[in-house]
């Protein structure tokens, strides 16, 4: 179980690093908003894999709540893009 979860964590870490490079090199704000959302979900996936690795009992609750809250970041970023207008 640990080996499998380790492989997933390495793949997700690579996804986060690629996303960070994309955010640094992106010119327009819209791309930064989208890639930061991708980094958010990759981080949630890594937290899930960590929960599985330490065999904690709240893994499902973490993913459940994080995917519900994920929309707030995206809505906030889109509101920032339009400078506060709807």
């Amino acid at each position: 179980m640990i080996v499998v979860v380790g492989i997933c964590a390495v793949i997700l870490a690579a996804a986060i690093i690629i996303g960070l490079i994309r955010v640094l090199t992106a010119r327009d704000q819209g791309s930064r908003a989208v890639v930061s959302d991708l980094i958010y979900f990759s981080a949630i996936a890594i937290v899930t894999m960590l929960g599985i690795a330490v065999s904690s009992s709240v893994v499902l609750d973490v993913v459940f709540l994080a995917s519900m809250v994920g929309i707030l970041a995206t809505i906030a970023l889109s509101r920032i893009l339009t400078r506060g207008h709807r």
């Binding site: 994309r22 791309s31 991708l38």
Partner: peptide, 29 residues
């Protein structure tokens, strides 16, 4: 867990790589 986890992680990695191939914000969404 391995099948689901690694497939999901590869999909996330794939969409992270796809962010480089498309050239504007709308296609990135």
């Amino acid at each position: 867990v391995g099948i689901f986890g690694i497939t999901g992680s590869l999909l996330l990695l794939g969409s992270a790589l796809a962010m480089f191939r498309v050239r504007d914000a709308l296609s990135r969404i």
